[in-house]
Simulated assay, not measured.
Amino acid sequence: MAIKAADVKKLREMTGAGMMDCKKALTETDGDFDAAVEIIRKKGQAMASKRADRETTEGCTLAKVSADGKKGAVIILKCETDFVGKNESFVALADSILEAALNSDAATKEDILDLQLNGVVIKEVITEQIGVIGEKIEIADYSVVNAETVVPYIHPGNQLSVVVGFNQAGFDVQVGKDVAMQVAAMAPVSVDKDSVPAEIVESELRIGKEKAREEGKPEAMLDKIAEGRLGKFFKESTLLEQAFVKDNKQSIKQYLNAASNGLTVTEFKRFSLS
């Protein structure tokens, strides 16, 4: 049977596959859309199997918050090449997956795969797109922040994204944006010194002692010197103690408290592809 251009267009819109692939699938199935979709899915499965051991080093990362502003999430969707990672349709796919995850109880990247997107399980959607694009695609990371207010930030180019949770609602929107951009720019290791992982603290103390020893400091002074250098590390590497990039005369903690008494950050997530 003759395949109409309108039918090819419809199948392309349904699957994202190329025009020629859609026409070929419809021709093979005598215009049966369901069977044509299945052919395209099988092509994706075959391609996914072929590229399973390929390395995904490119992609995009996005951040988004719920309508009430109390839940935020960040995702990294990876692919093989920069060309695909910057493609509008690839970014749109990442955005759609993130939206579905945000509107669910998904807590991990594995949870997302079982969700549905337009009636299709996301695991299958990704497989289909592998067939369409011809590259391995995978959800590399996903994380959620719940708080009284959550603020997102996506750096231009979709290579870095942030969500920051705050303990209050109703404060100046610009304050939230400033802190989210601070997290993006300064990459703190934690909110405050009390939330720095123990292994990092131990590593910094060890490095501090080794440096002091190399500098010829007295052995009896090494612990004290290391503690002093740890304090400097906390000031430079924990969000609330960091100097505010827009005004380095005050810390983020001081900036937040000046904006609203008792305002602080409860949690943040920062994803970067570099």
Results as ranks from 00 to 15, higher is better:
Tyr142Ala: 12
Glu138Val: 15
Phe171Arg: 11
Asp141Ile: 06
Gly165Asp: 10
Lys123Met: 01
Ile133Gln: 01
Gln116Glu: 14
Asn118Ile: 02
Thr149Lys: 15
Val145Cys: 08
Asn118Asp: 14
Glu135Gly: 14
Tyr153His: 14
His155Arg: 04
Gly170Lys: 12
Val164Glu: 08
Ile137Lys: 08
Asp172Gln: 09
Val120Leu: 09
Gly165Gln: 12
Asn146Ile: 04
Ala185Val: 00
Ala147Thr: 12
Gln182Arg: 03
Ile130Glu: 01
Lys123Ile: 02
Val151Arg: 05
Gln129His: 15
Val179His: 07
Asn146Val: 12
Val144His: 11
Ile126Tyr: 06
Lys123His: 11
Gln174Val: 04
Gly134Cys: 12
Val163Asn: 01
Val125Ile: 14
Gln182Asn: 12
Val120His: 00
Gln174Gly: 06
Ile133Tyr: 02
Phe171Pro: 01
Val132Tyr: 10
Val151Pro: 04
Lys177Gly: 07
Glu135Val: 13
Gly157Ser: 12
Ala180Gln: 01
Gly165Ser: 09
Glu138Trp: 07
Ala184Tyr: 10
Thr127Gln: 07
Glu124His: 07
Val150Asp: 02
Ile133Pro: 08
Phe171Tyr: 09
Ala140Cys: 03
Val144Phe: 07
Gly131Met: 12
Tyr153Asn: 09
Glu128Thr: 06
Val132Trp: 01
Leu115Pro: 01
Ile133Thr: 08
Ile154Asp: 10
Ala169Ser: 13
Asn167Val: 03
Leu160Tyr: 03
Val163Phe: 06
Ile130Gln: 10
Ile122Leu: 09
Lys136Tyr: 05
Ile133Asp: 03
Gly131Cys: 12
